[in-house]
């Protein structure tokens, strides 16, 4: 099928490429550009692993056609760490053990990033509803909520609170 030119901003840089009309954003990122940080899981809008930010809002790249993001601002998990330093959200997931197998983590991090840009003091309820479209089969969600709270504290410029759920290592 004939490809068409498509231009959008990808992770802060202007991107011009070519894609057929039936190309999904997810496949374009992973297979076309080698940005495999964004994950394919359910592939049908049920799990949130493929979440990316479009104009700052979390969207599902597995149900977005490349043509639908033309002229828009797309951010993937690859935009998070800068200069070898983890972003506040990544750091939260790392320190608070918000990631185990890691399959869902890029999606969670992008959903959290989308939430925290608009609201740096989210309640637990707000975190839960912002993560509502993501599924994690390892962590049991508690640590993910902790991770987002940690990231929010870092973004507010506060000292993150101690982690209450993991007991200190003995001896």
């Amino acid at each position: 099928m004939a490809k068409k030119l498509v231009s959008f901003t990808l992770n802060g840089r202007a991107h011009d490429g070519a894609a057929a009309d039936n190309t999904l954003l997810l496949d374009y990122l992973r297979e076309g550009l080698g940005l495999t940080g964004t994950k394919t899981a359910c592939d049908g809008g049920e799990c949130g692993a493929c979440t990316v930010l479009v104009n700052g809002e979390p969207r599902l790249s597995c149900l977005t056609l490349v043509g639908q993001v033309a002229g828009k601002d797309v951010e993937t998990i690859e935009s998070q760490a800068k200069g070898g330093k983890l972003s506040p959200v990544q750091e939260g997931f790392h320190l608070k053990l918000g990631a185990q197998c890691g399959g869902c983590t890029p999606g969670y991090i992008m959903a959290a990033e989308g939430l925290l840009r608009g609201n740096q003091s989210p309640t637990v309820g707000e975190i839960r509803s912002a993560m509502g479209a993501n599924i994690c089969r390892c962590t049991g969600y508690v640590k993910i909520i902790d991770a987002v709270q940690h990231a929010a504290a870092v973004m507010r410029g506060e000292e993150p609170a101690d982690y209450p759920d993991v007991p200190a290592a003995q001896g």
């Binding site: 809008g45 977005t64 959903a111 479209a133």
Partner: peptide
């Protein structure tokens, strides 16, 4: 309706 990402779309 659905989840937050779906509502954004």
């Amino acid at each position: 309706i659905a989840g937050p990402t779906h509502r954004n779309m």
